[in-house]
């Protein structure tokens, strides 16, 4: 984390730069069926993050070497569009995208009933169209909705939120400034029905008490976001 220290991001009333209280989540809208040629898809706008996810499959797994005789594999490609950030991102190979693709795949493979589709693959393409902060969380959450939209059986949908710490205050769902200048970042992937976790990363500096608070914020936020996901899949008002 940057830890620039003197950037003041919490005002005297305890409110954050975008007017949120420490435990508040940014506004979220979710839409399904946005990629008409895909088997399932989702567009999620979270603050000024925007992710579009398409799911294809289950389909034949190739190259053959990725095939598993007893189950399906999930092929996740997370990518940030060149115009998704303040400074243009050069397209092409990128270590950060590779890592995020991998941890997203690990999370999704933990919930999808892979044994139902031996020797096949399910392709999940995550495109970040606009990035604010927490794009890996938005990508993973939107991917869960897209998988559900594609009718792929899962034990639960993953809801991912990142909390952290700025100016020694633990805050939920970091925005761009808080992510850049804050002191800690704890993204988690929660299964709302059981409270179990399938995704966890962290960097920065948190005391045991702060860690507990950030953890609780994430779980609470995940429950709120889950409601919106279910609503969107049912064709609710905000979809």
């Amino acid at each position: 984390m940057g830890g620039y220290g003197d950037v003041q991001m919490i005002d005297e009333n305890g409110l954050r730069m975008d007017g949120r209280k420490p435990g508040d989540v940014r506004p979220i809208t979710i839409e399904t069926g946005v990629v008409p040629v895909a088997d399932g898809s989702c567009r999620m706008v979270w603050g000024t993050n925007e992710a579009i996810v398409a799911v294809y499959g289950p389909m034949e797994a190739h190259p053959r070497k990725i095939q598993r005789q007893d189950r399906a594999v999930i092929d996740v490609a997370y990518n940030m569009a060149p115009f998704s950030t303040t400074d243009r991102i050069r397209p092409g190979f990128n270590r950060r995208s590779r890592e995020i693709s991998k941890v997203t795949k690990d999370a999704l493979e933990s919930v999808v009933l892979l044994e139902l589709y031996p020797r096949s693959k399910i392709r999940v393409s995550i495109e970040i169209i606009s990035a604010e902060a927490g794009t890996r969380c938005v990508g993973l959450t939107a991917a869960s909705v897209a998988l559900a939209d594609a009718g792929i059986p899962m034990t639960d949908m993953v809801v991912s939120v990142a909390s952290g710490k700025v100016n020694d205050v633990v805050v939920c769902d970091l925005n761009k400034e808080e992510d850049n200048y804050g002191e800690a970042d704890l993204p988690m992937g929660v299964l709302p029905n059981t409270g179990e976790l399938v995704f966890l990363q962290m960097d920065g500096d948190l005391s045991p008490e702060e860690f507990k608070q950030a953890w609780d914020y994430n779980v609470d936020a995940a429950m709120q976001v889950h409601k919106l996901m279910v609503e969107a899949l049912k064709g609710g008002a905000n979809s």
Binding site: V35, Y56, A77, R123, E127
Partner: peptide, 18 residues
């Protein structure tokens, strides 16, 4: 002018170099 057709766009498009 740069163009990328990534796997999101259809099952016939694959990841990898352009």
């Amino acid at each position: 002018c740069s163009c990328e057709v990534r796997p999101i766009a259809g099952r016939h498009w694959e990841a990898g170099p352009p």
